[in-house]
Write a protein that binds this DNA or RNA. Structure first.
Lengths: 200, 200
DNA sequence: GTAGAGCACGAACGGTCGTGCTATTATGCC
DNA sequence: GGCATAATAGCACGACCGTTCGTGCTCTAC
């Protein structure tokens, strides 16, 4: 790994944190450069445009998400345990503890709100990431059906839709409302969702 | 109503639409002025600061929301019908048809993502509005329990949390993912939520 | 008929943004 | 150890931002 690659990762790591707090659009090249201790033009040269920076941060965050959420969850046993692991890992990722090095909320949810009405490659990248995530939930649900943990006539996409709703409600109540009951309500909602999807 | 009041409403109506598309922070005074056909400084004088404009747009949007979602739903019969009306009205409000005069998505959800990490009066105003909305859902749930439509041991706040999750999932899939199945999945999720909350 | 309030305008301010260009320094290969 | 090249810094630009200020209309009240 050359020195440039190292610097690039340093930038992306900081960029991911800033994007989680302020969003991808508010992420400014000058302030990000200050944060990593280099010049604006030096940082700029790595990405050649702001859109390039945004896409790179998005790709880096996506890798981070896969490594910290999806991959660990995949080592849980197929079926219900894996679904639980996906939820647990997401909760830890989307609302980091105060002692974590990560800041802010979920970069993708922040970006989703910012770009849902702004056509372009950034919007497409965000949408693709999120489609992949929901697909992962859907596949895990299908596996739980195969394993006999969930009803055979369950619609996996419908289950994923509702599970994602639980996640969104958690993120919303935890981050905007500072609702202390957010976590227990999230778990209760998920248990109810599971219970209603189990074989009779 | 004086001429100034009339202009002010014109500005706020346009501001609400812009905020639904681009967000409250990206709403720029100059471009908003162009849109309503007046000068930047003339518009500015109405609000004395950008924060003042944001708070005014928020208050105006809140009134609009109450008038188009909450009030009509309150004329539905107490209990389950009213809960259904709240959902239906929200869906029409949060993702307007193409032929509607309104544009963009839900101003509050957009603002929630923008301000959840930015302390200040705007964040507080957004949070208060959303707390009120969830309180309205919670109260409607309590009434449905009183009416015997829902289980007596149901936790209204938990039900509201999950109903809000369904709404958030709809907004997300409809606006970012352009998911054509968003609406039927939303209705299916709500039916399942209702079914699991009805008396045994 | 005139004083005054309300309202909007245009110009300009300091600041930050993304983005080019050019120089300078650091790195890695022979 | 010199040399090509990668990496970073410095500087300037045009555009746009929120904000301020002085000015001029157009009504209304006396």
């Amino acid at each position: 790994m050359t020195k440039g690659d190292h610097t690039r990762i340093l930038i992306l790591e900081a960029g991911m944190n800033v994007a989680g707090v302020e969003g991808l659009e508010a992420l400014s090249i000058g302030r990000l450069a200050d944060r990593v201790g280099m010049s604006k033009s030096g940082l700029f040269a790595h990405f050649r445009s702001k859109e390039g920076l945004q896409l790179a941060v998005l790709a880096y965050t996506r890798d981070h998400f896969i490594q910290h959420v999806v991959v660990p969850a995949m080592s849980a046993p197929r079926g219900e345990p894996r679904l639980r692991a996906l939820l647990d890992r997401w909760l830890a990722w989307g609302a980091p503890d105060a002692d974590s090095s990560r800041e802010g909320g979920c970069v993708f949810l922040q970006a989703a709100a910012e770009f849902d009405d702004r056509p372009g490659s950034v919007r497409e990248a965000v949408a693709t990431s999120q489609r992949d995530w929901i697909d992962a939930l859907t596949r895990a649900t299908s596996i739980a059906i195969e394993e006999g943990h969930l009803r055979a006539d369950l619609d996996p996409a419908q289950f994923a839709f509702e599970m994602h709703g639980v996640i969104l409600s958690f993120h919303f109540q935890r981050r905007l409302l500072d609702e202390p009951e957010a976590l227990p309500r999230t778990r209760a909602a998920f248990e109810r969702l599971l219970a209603s999807a189990r074989p009779a």
